[in-house]
Design a protein around this nucleic acid. Structure first.
Lengths: 214, 214
DNA sequence: TCCTACTGACTGACCAGTCAGCTATTAATC
DNA sequence: GATTAATAGCTGACTGGTCAGTCAGTAGGA
């Protein structure tokens, strides 16, 4: 085994992500405004000053957090799309499964909610999120829909609106989980909701079957 | 014309709602955490102390705001449902139009977003909102869906999940408006999105037409 | 003259961000 | 290999500013 790197130096490499992890936990529990830099520091096992060595402000921590956690998931969604060519309806289900899986991770789900809540206070972040996350997600989806329409698998429909209608239940389910899930007496399993969504949506956009009687 | 009521006394009656109006504007612009009591007071044309005469804390202002603005709309939705009996699909469109109209008022749209954002800090409010707003809205919707299924107008489907799928695009569209609308280069008109939603959704849940060839 | 609505200066707590200094580690020197 | 020097990483007390909430006092109205 290679000798471990010097402890101090190794810590330096690890600190940023340790701080972000701690920050995510804090933001999830109390929101952005109510978490203090000291909370984040203590949770990361570090002093307040150290956090400022790596991030110049609380805003910067938040922005780094969003960037670090969101983009890898988008990349992997795009990759899985490329890895699974096939009928557009199958790819649609693939994307749905993907979102469902991401959405089942409470730590990740917290992020869109935070962005939504803080969009007013972080216009830059809202722009970034709209462009890099929502924009790219919708574009992927529109690509799949366009392929399906071109192949006669789906009816011709306005791409943008259709893509948003497909995504809406996925996103809202995620927000729901983080907001109301705790107080549900008989929670509706997300998998059930999403399965029904897939069924209804595919039926709604399917091209009509060829009618042999005509 | 009857003589106007004494100015001081009249003001007392009007203050609470004036304060709530001002608070809504402030919360919309800067979020809950970032608005100061003094902002609300100035906007209401009053001093900070006066706000505290009517509401014991900032939290109380927020809670009163939500309660005052949400419930009347639900009542009126229920009333309009009673006033328009008819096929379930028509009632579904009625509810969609209703939500669309409420949603087109930016002041009202801000509230669900605030509740979402602050749910963690106001557990009581989240419970209230879940029960009184979301719960009653979903119940109304489930009622319409159940009628339609019983009448053979819609396929039999799980009520709860179907109702949520119907609502999701409406709510998400509202959140979208408040979060990203400002930066859209070619905004998608909500009416267009909602019309497509109605079309797709009704097609998805429609009972299959009787097949005369069978 | 009394009361009711209102005012706004004030207090106490809180916290983001700073910085002088400490400590563990590595490098240099003998 | 022991001692000292240099430095990178980290610390936490401190500062300056902000703001929720208070309350003694003012003024309009009956």
């Amino acid at each position: 085994m290679s000798s471990p790197p010097p402890r101090r130096a190794r810590r330096k490499a690890d600190r940023p992500s340790e701080v972000l992890d701690a920050a995510l936990d804090c933001f999830r529990e109390r929101g952005f405004a109510a978490t203090r830099m000291e909370d984040i520091a203590v949770r990361a096992g570090v002093s307040k000053g150290t956090v400022y060595l790596y991030y110049p402000s609380k805003q910067a921590v938040f922005e780094a957090l969003v960037r670090a956690n969101i983009l890898p998931n988008l990349e992997s969604a795009a990759a899985s799309l490329v890895a699974h060519p096939g009928p557009a309806s199958a790819q649609l289900r693939l994307m749905l499964d993907f979102v469902a899986q991401v959405t089942s991770n409470p730590r990740l789900v917290a992020l869109p909610k935070l962005v939504l809540a803080e969009a007013g206070n972080f216009p830059d972040l809202a722009v970034f999120y709209r462009r890099e996350v929502v924009g790219r997600g919708l574009a992927m989806l529109e690509g799949v829909l366009a392929r399906g329409m071109a192949a006669g698998e789906f009816r011709p429909l306005p791409l943008t609106a259709t893509a948003r209608l497909f995504l809406a239940p996925l996103l809202l389910n995620a927000l729901w989980q983080t907001t109301f899930a705790a107080q549900e007496s008989a929670p509706l399993p997300p998998a059930e909701l999403l399965a029904l969504h897939a069924e209804l949506f595919l039926r709604a956009i399917a091209a009509p079957a060829e009618d042999p009687h005509r």
